[in-house]
Design a protein around this nucleic acid. Structure first.
Ligand code: MN
Ligand code: MN
Ligand code: ZN
Ligand code: ZN
Lengths: 142, 142
DNA sequence: TCAACAGTTTAGAATAGTTATAATGTAGTT
DNA sequence: AACTACATTATAACTATTCTAAACTGTTGA
């Protein structure tokens, strides 16, 4: 739950000018209790419909990429036809609901620490993340 | 290492007509010792360059999707801008080399069995897969 | 054997998410 | 206020993928 002034600082301290558009996007993304997942389309719709603001789609893309580059967002690929972004930038696991296409964060203590026994020579491990695909329990699971 | 006749049977038994194009694609994909990962583009290039055959790109897409629907291929999303396919259709884990964009299968016994303690009500778990991102060990890791 | 039909291939058009362009606008600095 | 670098914008371009509809082919059964 940050205030506008804090976003201004945050942006400036990472070398990004605190423009109206970026501050508005900060509000939408970071002025919340919980982290969440979104697509660029979700975000653009959210801004134009609910907030009645006009931010160019190009700016939404630019901003999301800038925030990702600064480590304020993380990109997640579950489905090749659209990119998901995550305001939770830590390494963490997900449930993916195949019925609704919804991503759900998995608490660290919901999965025991993963022990990777193999390693690739000359390479270091940057992340180990689990994806758990779930779907409706009843008969008609596609 | 299947022979042509076996592919004919395999296709027919899954309700797919054994056409020249499908048989050629079967050869490329399944006539090997090891499973592997590819993109549609890789596959199309492979066919046109190395095998000097002319299969329409639309047919390559159609066939890969048909094979996926029949369970002969699995789609993997690591990167939102292109889809990877896997001739290993079992549930399994991957290393992803961020330097080369290469996917590497992880043997089952390289990772201890994953214990998921949480579950989503009304949903059943279809798969639990781990993605391990690796990159060059030295100074310049982007 | 062969006509008929459903399934398949194909080139090319269409689509959709994303990125590039280049003109206009704005924040920060002097 | 003037300058400059950075940012926004509309729109064009790009690219992976899907769609279309016409031509072709495998299969069936008379
Ligand atoms: Mn794309
Ligand atoms: Mn696309
Ligand atoms: Zn998440
Ligand atoms: Zn694999």
């Amino acid at each position: 739950m940050l205030k506008n002034v804090e976003f201004v600082d945050k942006l400036r301290s990472s070398g990004l000018r605190p423009t109206k558009q970026r501050l508005k996007i900060c509000e939408v993304l970071f002025n919340r209790d919980k982290t969440f997942h979104f697509t660029i389309n979700d975000l653009a719709k959210n801004i134009s419909e609910k907030l009645n603001e006009k931010i160019s789609l190009a700016t939404v893309y630019n901003t999301v990429h800038a925030f990702k580059a600064k480590g304020y967002l993380k990109e997640i690929s579950i489905n090749s036809d659209r990119s998901y972004f995550d305001t939770n930038t830590k390494i963490h696991h997900h449930f993916f609901d195949e019925d609704t296409n919804e991503l759900i964060d998995c608490d660290d203590d919901d999965i025991e620490k993963i022990n990777v026994k193999k390693n690739i020579t000359g390479k270091k491990i940057n992340s180990v993340e689990v994806l758990i695909k779930v779907a409706s329990d009843n008969q008609n699971q596609k």
